[in-house]
Design a protein around this nucleic acid. Structure first.
Lengths: 334, 334
DNA sequence: CTGTTAGCGCCTTCAG
DNA sequence: CTGAAGGCGCTAACAG
């Protein structure tokens, strides 16, 4: 059996209280006593039982993240970076990170319910918000703190929002200067906030630059490279195909690049392609992909910080806006 | 406050014992009573407090996974798929998955210690094993059950091992038939079991096909696409450069493709490139990447199954061997 | 500065 | 079939 606080106390002829306080860094313990305790604890390999502590303190010291439903979409570097950020930051604060993966909408819902009701997590980080996302109402009703990358609805909660309006203006400007004119947009699922926002910024930027947008040029995928490929094949088969394809994310853009290659198009000259998110591999695609880069790792860390503050009842400034950074690469010429 | 078992009992004028048993599916509860309890519990939104249950049962009903140290490596789709698999399968068994991310060797170690000693997890899944990995000895000493993708050392533990010997023979054969002769290998860190194994199979396959291997052609990276790019630039600058570059993973191969493009080489004709792992994007690189595919999601699920069996004291057949599947794509011609 | 005491919510003997 | 009692390991009053 693993040693308990009692074992440590017994060994030192101290009360368990003293041991507990010494280890937790209270200042009402004599310095020599503390040192003794700390040393003995380490030597015995003692470390407090999480369940007991949680039960007593009435908090889990754990935050949760649930990979959104849609198994095929998981093969995205985005989530690795995001989870790494969450794990990194929570570890720093001595919090644990609980992760699960949902199959479908139903299992997703039951996961959230189990976590919320079981007191398993003190708070949650959300991601890939949908328009009218039930999770927001659910968590708000249950009074479970949560933060989220992006925002939707009228409920107010701490979040980080991307502000891509300027980024898109810059991007479209850059693409135009390279001589491209006929724009298309390959989006994601229509109910995804990411999709709606990014498409919105794109439209705005088009208006800003006074470029006419053909609605036929707006198509949807599911954020995967395969869906990007599929969408691009269709776009390029149109009688008047686009020569500048903006994508909702980098994965989609990879698929578009592939389709353009298959068509024998010279990317960067005959057609421009751009992504969004700035995953590592975008640097090494053929040609390297122009993208609106967002610092996923840091965003995840900051979401944890905001969440922990919320949990501890501190005020949090929100929303925090992050502006993507345009990385000009050969896929858009220039 | 969230309802406790006591609230449910009070409402129904039953003892908490009965409620507990009714919900846990014991068979010594009258059927009408059970139904009443289940209904009331659902209606009140009751679900047992995890911490209390864990404390009482002396098990965490939680398994752990720690993203290995090396932040830049996290931007890999591999881990998203792996974690999704772990999360998926543990949720199926009503287990939780705890995830953390290590900065460096030191923080990695302290994470494992905290988890092991704190009784936070009933077991762990390992990954990216190193030669003489301290984690194995540590966990074995502490009697913490664990499973791992790949194996090293003399300690026996349940694991899934890749058997790539045949896969590499097939791959080399395929590449040779396409007319390539001068092989190179871009590996990972020298102490990584993945690296050692894959390089080993590669060497074996070369011997099998009686192809002379120039030691200068074996170089190392850190599994990232950037390191693959770097390595390839150097290889291709040699007086007698390779025309077939085999890579320890797909990310590395993406970097190699990029470098080859920069050199103006026609990939699939003038040079062959292959990866390992079969991440989604390999299908859409330019040209699509030949790779030895392994079912990462399923492997992760199976590792969880094996781990849970081990935790429950069941015997587990191990090692389980998985043979990669050669996906022939244009990056190797043919 | 240190010890005593009283639970946190649940499960599990052991009695009825 | 159901209930009463005890305690998992820890922390936070409250005394000394």
């Amino acid at each position: 059996m693993r040693p308990t606080i009692r074992d440590v106390a017994k060994k030192l002829n101290l009360s368990i209280t003293t041991v507990s306080r010494a280890l937790d860094g209270y200042d009402d313990v004599a310095e020599p006593t503390r040192e003794m305790v700390v040393k003995a604890a380490r030597q015995m390999g003692y470390s407090p039982n999480r369940a007991a502590r949680q039960l007593r303190r009435q908090k889990a010291e754990t935050i949760g993240f649930i990979l959104p439903a849609g198994a095929q979409r998981f093969a995205e570097a985005f989530f690795t970076e995001f989870i790494a950020g969450l794990g990194h930051e929570s570890a720093l604060h001595n919090y644990d990170l609980l992760v699960s993966a949902a199959d479908d909408g139903k299992s997703e819902r039951s996961l959230y319910e189990r976590w919320a009701n079981g007191g398993k997590v003190d708070g949650l980080v959300l991601n890939r918000l949908r328009i009218r996302d039930w999770r927001i109402k659910f968590l708000a009703d249950q009074r479970i703190p949560f933060t989220s990358l992006s925002h939707t609805g009228s409920v107010n909660f701490p979040c980080i929002r991307i502000d891509g309006a300027e980024g898109y203006i810059e991007l479209i400007d850059h693409v135009c200067r390279s001589g491209f004119r006929r724009f298309a947009f390959v989006g994601g699922p229509a109910n995804l906030v990411n999709h709606v926002e990014r498409l919105g910024w794109f439209r705005q930027a088009m208006r800003h630059h006074k470029i006419v947008l053909d609605e036929e040029m707006i198509v949807s995928g599911d954020l995967s490279s395969s869906s990007g490929y599929q969408a691009a094949i269709e776009l390029l088969s149109l009688p008047d195909p686009p020569d500048a394809v903006m994508c909702v994310n980098d994965e989609t853009a990879f698929g578009v690049l592939h389709a353009a290659h298959n068509r024998g198009l010279e990317i960067g000259r005959q057609i421009a392609v751009a992504g969004f998110e700035g995953v590592q591999d975008a640097k090494h695609s053929e040609p390297p992909l122009t993208t609106l880069d967002i610092p996923v790792f840091d965003i995840a860390r900051q979401l944890v910080d905001m969440l922990l503050k919320t949990i501890n009842g501190e005020k949090v400034e929100s929303p925090v806006f992050v502006r993507p950074n345009l990385l000009r690469r050969p896929s858009t010429g220039g």
